[in-house]
Design a protein around this nucleic acid. Sequence first.
DNA 1: TTACGAAAAATATCAGATATTATTGATTAC
DNA 2: GTAATCAATAATATCTGATATTTTTCGTAA
Lengths: 228, 228
Amino acid sequence: MNENVSQPSGEPILTIGENAYRRIRADIVFGRLVPGQKLKLERLRDTYGASISTLREILNRLSSESLVVAEGQRGFEVAPVSVENLREIAALRLLLEAHALEQSFAAGDMEWEGRVVAAHHKLATLERRMRGGDHSDTELWKRYDWEFHQALISACGSTVLMETHAGIFDKYLRYQMIALSFRGDIAAEEHKIMHDCALARDAKRAREVLIRHVEGGVEHALATGTIR
Amino acid sequence: MNENVSQPSGEPILTIGENAYRRIRADIVFGRLVPGQKLKLERLRDTYGASISTLREILNRLSSESLVVAEGQRGFEVAPVSVENLREIAALRLLLEAHALEQSFAAGDMEWEGRVVAAHHKLATLERRMRGGDHSDTELWKRYDWEFHQALISACGSTVLMETHAGIFDKYLRYQMIALSFRGDIAAEEHKIMHDCALARDAKRAREVLIRHVEGGVEHALATGTIR
DNA sequence: TTACGAAAAATATCAGATATTATTGATTAC
DNA sequence: GTAATCAATAATATCTGATATTTTTCGTAA
């Protein structure tokens, strides 16, 4: 997830709007707000404790991100999902991430390796625990997953690329959450390989694994039948 | 530019907010609102005739698109520009557009060819006129330029890819407008080649020309010295 | 010149009002 | 029974104006 990294010198003060924005966004990405669901302003006000003006600002932001749709004068609703859309998003994620991976592998320094190893450690540890049947931390898992993939491409040298990737990644993530598709064993294995590839600077192999990783995720999500 | 295609059966009624949104967005993309410029709400209200509430919704949308930055409680300003950022945007445009081009060339049918030929015709005609020294239609030229590139990738089969490309394209466009860099002769030649490649389904060559096209645009823009 | 603090400006947020547009439900026509 | 019609209701887009905070400005003192 895209969380602001808190500065070492005190956490950043969140404005009411920023706070509600994150909550709503997370509720959409994690499927607590259902695709297609109408977002009535008064109800949102009660739920998120922000005024209607502020909420409209938030919903406008989210509609720019394609997580919410605003149709004419008919208010807002959670962006719908479709098989088609999932496939497009997965393909775009692959295009962006594979390219970023290559750049990152070529340019990564020791700091970068440190980030990769650290992110993988957190992820692998959690994955091991989850393999034991403890699925209570699915959200945390997804976050570590994000942090790992983010770390892998973090030396690609392009902020624009990373931000664009982050936006697409979250939309991909939403599909995974909606399908509630945990395939920890396979994913963990693939994460391990990518981690090793990173240290060995084997971009070619990492790319292949990434393709399997994402396409496997798509098929697994579709297999649950949750997405029409 | 991203304009709503007006339906055959009557033009879509534009809400005040939508209208102001487009005007402000165009003013940013076409450089009339200068990078880094503070966007004071009261002044915007007078200029664009929308209330402050509505304007805040618009600015929030634009900040999601990275055309405006909203820093804490310090209001909004037009997104700054930098050489770094231009290079990143150009590179991302190339990644997206080259990939979309390939897909499009492979899947394009007769309808697609028609769109390409039509868009190229409009663009080439205007470029011929502009070569005569008439630079009064720079905005129109940029729009036809957009429509042509859009047509080329319009058979790529991915809405998500096209929308993402459109967002990046407009940011690239902003740099071109800021640098006021018209290099009609070279660009027109490259447009012609891409047009021919499309009909011949020569994706490989089109890609090479596209790379020249975009990278040439970047260097040309940088050469004006307008962007620090 | 730099540092400090009060005054002014601008912002984030809210509540409530109005006009317009959607949606709902009942009624009528076929 | 289904389709079309239209008034009543609900929800939205937009605006005005108010309040508490936060930034910025600017003059004064160190």
